[in-house]
Each structure stands twice: as C-alpha cells, then as structure tokens.
C-alpha cells in the first residue's frame, strides 16, 4: 500500500512541571493507516496522544518542545488555530466522558459548535455515526434520554460516535475498547478497519491481539521513550529489541 505522511512527531519532549514524561519521541503516521501505541501503564501513551490534539495545553505548568508536523504545518506554531486543529484531529478519551445531555445532543454537539444548523443533516449524521460506532440498535428508541443513563461500554461507543460525527482527518483513540464486551469490541475493531479508508487512526491499546488485528504499524513505548516502531507484523513476529519481545510475549518486568 502506498504511504502518505500525515503526521510526524519530531524530537518531542513533554514535561509535567519538572517531570519529563516524554523523551525525544520521533514517530511518523501515515494516511489511511492504523498505528497502535503499546506499552506498560504509565509509559506516556496517553500523554503522547494528548500532545497531538494539544489537549495538554489545558493542564497548567506543562511544557512541550520539539515539533509535531500535521500536513506540513507545525501544530505548536503560534499562528496555528487550536480550535480548528481539534476539529481536524478527533479524540476518544481513555475514560468515557459523555455530556450530561441527551444521547442525540451528545452526537450532534460537534456539528452544532462547528456551525452546522441544517436539522436534517444533523439527524442523518447522528444516525450514521451511531450506526458506525455499533450503538444505534441499542439506543435508536431512546435518543432523547440522558447519555448518563447508558452503561460504561455504551458511553464509550457514544463518545466514539460523537468524535466521528465531525469527520476528523485523524482519529486518536485512547483504549477505546477497554470497557467493552467481546462483541462490542469486535464491532469497534471492524469499525476501525472500515474507518481507515477515510481517516488516519492512532490507537492506544493494552491488548496485544487487538493491536495485531487492527493496526498496520505498532510503536512500543517504555518509560516515556519510544523503544521500537515497525510495521505490526514485523514488530510482533521479529522484534529487533529484547525489551520489545519481552513485553509482547508477556514476560515483562
């Protein structure tokens, strides 16, 4: 498959106060490919993901240096409009975080804040997004009930639908399936494979099989450093480093 560079992190360092959470991360992401980020808990996967849509800007006393180039433009450049950036780079958070609004309103939210008023377009997009995220059948009769009445797994799929509704170019998914049962997980994995026709996807997962199933590339993080990155098959069958091998075979630590 032909590869077009979509996003590229170059010598990225990130600090929470004085604690350095990411060390010199250089990593490329390609259009219409899925990249999985794996690594033990606390190694900085979420932190890295949140650098990409500048979510970490919201945490006081944090510092970034290095570059993230998105379609040829540095997302940390002063001239960049963060609001527009975040519309183009969508995110599904590690913990489900639906708004205390109706199911419909949750999915419609992104459209409305981005200036879409057409009621028919909105309800079509809401339905489409809920179908994609494998939630439609469960909620189609209760679209106007509060999203907080959904189960954890349903909430997570709602958050996926909400992110899809604004059609981002890149989709960041932080363990989107961690609260899901095997059937919903299967659906989400199918969705990811489908979505990559349109989007660039970066997914954090603790599930090696999942990474192997859905991703084209896999990057292994450890203690804030990028240890190894390769196409998924190679990384899982012939890792170059012992550290990587230990982690993926579960002989870690």
């Amino acid at each position: 498959m032909e590869k077009t560079l979509k996003l590229s992190s170059q010598n990225l360092n990130f600090y929470y106060g004085t604690v350095q959470a990411l060390h010199d991360i250089s990593l490329d992401f390609y259009s219409n490919h899925v990249t999985a980020l794996i690594g033990p808990s606390g190694c900085g996967k979420s932190t890295f993901l949140r650098c990409i849509n500048r979510m970490n800007d919201l945490i006081p006393e944090t510092k970034v240096d290095g570059k993230i180039i998105f379609d040829g433009q540095d997302i940390y450049a002063h001239s960049l409009d963060v609001v527009l950036l975040r519309k183009r780079i969508g995110m599904v958070f590690q913990k489900p975080n639906p708004f205390p609004k109706s199911i419909f309103e949750n999915v419609a939210y992104g459209l409305k804040v981005n200036g879409i008023r057409d009621k028919r377009l909105i309800s079509e997009t809401v339905e489409e997004s809920l179908i994609k995220s494998a939630l439609w059948d469960e909620v189609k009769d209760r679209l106007y009930e509060s999203a907080l009445s959904l189960s954890g797994g349903q909430q997570q799929r709602l958050c996926i639908a909400r992110a899809l509704a604004v059609s981002p170019e890149i989709l960041l998914m932080d363990e989107p399936a961690s609260a899901l049962d095997p059937i919903a997980t299967q659906k989400i994995e199918d969705l990811i494979l489908q979505l990559k026709e349109l989007y660039t996807i970066i997914i954090v997962t603790h599930n090696m099989q999942q990474a192997a199933r859905v991703s084209d590339f896999t990057a292994f993080f450890y203690m804030g450093k990028l240890i190894e990155m390769d196409d998924t098959e190679t990384l899982f069958t012939r890792p170059k480093l012992k550290q990587t091998e230990d982690y993926i075979t579960g002989r870690f630590g």
Partner: peptide, 23 residues
Amino acid sequence: VPHTYREASLALGATKWQTIYKV
C-alpha cells in the same frame, strides 16, 4: 463541573466560550 466535560467539548473543536455556554 467535571474537567472531562470541558476536555470533551474542546476536543470536538468547540471554542472556550462555546464550551462554557453549552456545557
């Protein structure tokens, strides 16, 4: 108001004021 609501809104490309006003 949980911080995660603000994050969710901003991540969808809402401005700060939209986030405050709508969420």
